[in-house]
Amino acid sequence: MTPEQLALRDTVRSLLDKHSDVRAAIETPHGYDKDVWARLCDIGALPIPERYGGSGAGRAETHIALEELGRTLTPSPLLASTIASRALLATGNEEACDRLLPRIADGTVATLVWPWDNGRSSLDGTARYVLDGDLAEIVLATDGTGLYEIDLAGVTREHTPTMDQTRRLATIHLTGAATLLGPWSRHVRDIALAALAAEQVGAAARALELTVEYSKTRVQFGKPIGSFQALKHRMADMHVLVETARSAALAATDEVSAAVAKVYCSEALFKVAAEMVQLHGGIAITWEHDAHLYLKRAHGSTQLFGSPQVHLARLAATCLDRDQPPEPASRKMRRNVGHSR
C-alpha cells in the first residue's frame, strides 16, 4: 500500500472504531447508519472521478474501504453504489454520468439490478436480492445488453430480510419503464465480485483476530487455550486461508481471476467464521457475542452475486470444456504458453 492508501485505511478504520455500531444500525428502519455513510462519502470511498464530483478514488482505494467495512460488518450502501457507479461509467454516457454521479458521490444511494449469471433478463419482471434495492433513489438495470435507468414511478419494492441482517436486500417489481443509458459491460460482474471479495477478506481477517485475542485470554486447565496445539493449528490454517484469500482478492481484475476470487474468498470467509464459532465455544452460541454476525455475513456473502457453485460451473466451462485451456488468472502473464505435452 502507498502512504496515501495506508492513511485512507487508518482514516476509515478510526471512523468505524468511533462511530460504527452495527447492532444499532441494523435496528434502524433503513438498516444502516446515515451519519457513517455521509462520512464515508466525505472521505471519498466511492470510485467516482473528480470531473463527476467524486474523489477520484480508484479500485484500490474503494477496496480498502470495503475491507474495513467488512472487518466491522458495518452495513453500508458502499458496495451497491460502487457497482452502480462503475456500471454507469462503463456506458460512456456523459450526460447520464454528469447527471447521476455527482448525486451518488454526495451519498444518494444507487444500485444495480442484474442477473448474476450474466444471462438476459427482462426489465418488467421481479428482481430478487437487490442490494439496497428498497432504499436506492437511483436504480439501474441491465437486460444483458444495455444499461437502463429505471423509472421508479409505479415500481414496488420491499425489504426482504435474509439471514445476514447486516446486508440490506430487497425484491423489486419492475414495470418496464426504463431509459437506455448505454451498453452494458460484462466486466461489471468482475468488478462486483472483486469488490465483494475485498469485503470478505476484511471480515475473515477480523474474525481470525477476534478468535486469536479470545484464545489468549480464555484460561482452562490453568493455561490460555491458545497455547494448546489442537487450537493453534486450527488458527494457523485460518491464517493461511486469510492470507491466500487476500492475494486472490488483490489480483481479481479479469473474468477468470474475479471468479477465482469469488469462489476462494467465499469459502475462506465461511470456513474462518465457522471456526470462529467453534474456537469460541459456548459464548459463540449466544446472541450477545458477534461470532454469529460473522457467520451470517459469511453465509450471505457466499450466496451474493451467485454461489461458489455457480462460479465454479462457469470456471469449469471455461477451464474444462473449451478446446483451448483457460487463460490463467492474468492474461498478460501467460500469453501463448503452450500446454501440450
Binding site: E243, T244, S247, A248, L250, A251, V256, S257, V260, V263, Y264, L315, C319, P326, P328, A329
Partner: peptide, 10 residues
C-alpha cells in the same frame, strides 16, 4: 486448478 491459481497469485 483454483488452488494452483491462488498459490500463484499469492
Amino acid at each position: 486448478w483454483i488452488g494452483a491459481q491462488a498459490y500463484r497469485l499469492h
